[in-house]
Amino acid sequence: MIRTFQFVRNKCLRFWMDGFQVKLSEVNAEATRVRHNSEFPWAGKLESSAAQAASERAMSAIRRFYENRKAKIPGNIGFPKFQKNNRSVEYKVAGWKLSPDRKRITCTDKFKAGTFKLVGTYDLNFYHLKAIKRVRIVRRSDGYYCQFCIAVERNISIEPTGRAVGIDVGLAKFYTTSDGQTVDNPRHLRTAERSLKRAQRRVSSKFRRPNKGEKVKQSNNYKKACKWLGKKHLTVQRRRKDFVAKTAKALLESSDFIAYEKLNVKNLVKNRKLSKSISDAAWTQFTDWIERYGMLYKRPVVAVPPQYTSQDCNECGTRVKKTLSVRTHICPKCNLVIDRDENAALNILVKGLNQAGLALNLSTSGHEGINAWGQNSLYFVGENLQDKLTG
């Protein structure tokens, strides 16, 4: 099922590449033609809604390529590529069936994969069957997972805190807020690196290197070693996601307004000395979760450009050039001494408030006393934050 799903997606992409000026609706119709093509009889076993989902994935890659080209993004604009190791198959309202107790799922297409027991803490009895819009079966290193896309409204109301913060992400500290609070960088990959290297050495020792021009079948021990290595990486991935999601949620629940810098991580990881640490920090994933919880809690979240946020003095605006090794901001004009990341977070907050159209008044002294929103040194002029944001 998964491999056929990948085949249909790649066929739709090839159809677009051959024509290149075809409409996206024609790409969707290509999935139907592939299913009914006598040359690929096994492709007809895939349920029609799954074939449509495969064509939608191809169209999503094509649409993203056109949007990047229209925006004139420098460098690689993401030309669509063929998938070589797809790990999921997606169904819409057909192709699957739940048991009456919602504890088992049956694949009803012609592949006859059978019935599978659902193990997990979520109870599907709370939702109507018509509310389940998509079902995705995902293969991972430790087994197969079933994901349900359910159309429900989540109304979460939390009390306003009257706090607005700017956050500056980094490597020494995961992030620093404009009021001086910091969160340590857990460095999940660095922590598990020793175990990962041992698993990788085991994979290398079991690999049978073929001679030139011949194919060698790998042993079961090699496959077991690859599976063990995959589980190690999956553990790191899950720990990173859990930390990022919980940190973003706590930040949104304690703030009414958040401003963060929109970093181009794709260019930052080109630094060979810092690429591993930047990837391990998961800044993009963190900001994605902030935006997601911002929409869920109906809290304004603003992304600001990162230019000169670390160089400019938040007190007088003087631009003080400094390298990454300099961790303290010392202004030669106003004699302000403050942590580099906190200075950047304050600049990010000011940029975010200006971008959101909110008036801000910063006093010229007493930055050490900025601990929370509402103090005399940091406040909105003549209006309440919650009234401004909700009005």
Results as ranks from 00 to 15, higher is better:
261 E>G: 05
261 E>S: 07
262 K>Q: 12
264 N>R: 10
265 V>Y: 00
266 K>T: 08
266 K>C: 04
267 N>E: 12
268 L>I: 03
268 L>G: 00
271 N>V: 05
272 R>Y: 09
273 K>M: 06
274 L>M: 08
274 L>V: 04
275 S>L: 05
275 S>V: 03
275 S>Y: 02
278 I>N: 04
278 I>E: 02
280 D>L: 11
282 A>D: 06
285 Q>S: 06
285 Q>M: 04
286 F>I: 00
286 F>M: 02
287 T>D: 04
287 T>Y: 01
288 D>E: 12
290 I>D: 02
291 E>H: 12
291 E>G: 06
291 E>F: 10
292 R>W: 06
292 R>E: 04
293 Y>S: 01
294 G>P: 02
296 L>P: 04
296 L>N: 06
299 R>P: 03
299 R>V: 13
300 P>L: 04
301 V>N: 03
301 V>I: 14
302 V>N: 04
303 A>T: 06
303 A>G: 15
304 V>F: 05
304 V>I: 10
305 P>Y: 02
306 P>R: 06
307 Q>R: 10
307 Q>N: 07
307 Q>F: 03
307 Q>V: 02
308 Y>T: 02
309 T>K: 08
309 T>E: 01
310 S>E: 01
310 S>H: 07
310 S>T: 13
310 S>C: 04
312 D>C: 11
314 N>H: 15
314 N>W: 11
315 E>V: 11
315 E>H: 13
317 G>R: 14
317 G>I: 13
319 R>E: 10
320 V>W: 06
320 V>S: 10
323 T>P: 09
324 L>F: 07
324 L>Y: 08
324 L>R: 08
325 S>H: 12
326 V>L: 12
326 V>F: 10
327 R>I: 12
328 T>C: 08
329 H>Y: 14
330 I>G: 04
331 C>D: 12
333 K>F: 14
335 N>C: 11
335 N>K: 15
336 L>E: 13
337 V>P: 08
339 D>Y: 11
340 R>Q: 14
341 D>S: 13
342 E>M: 15
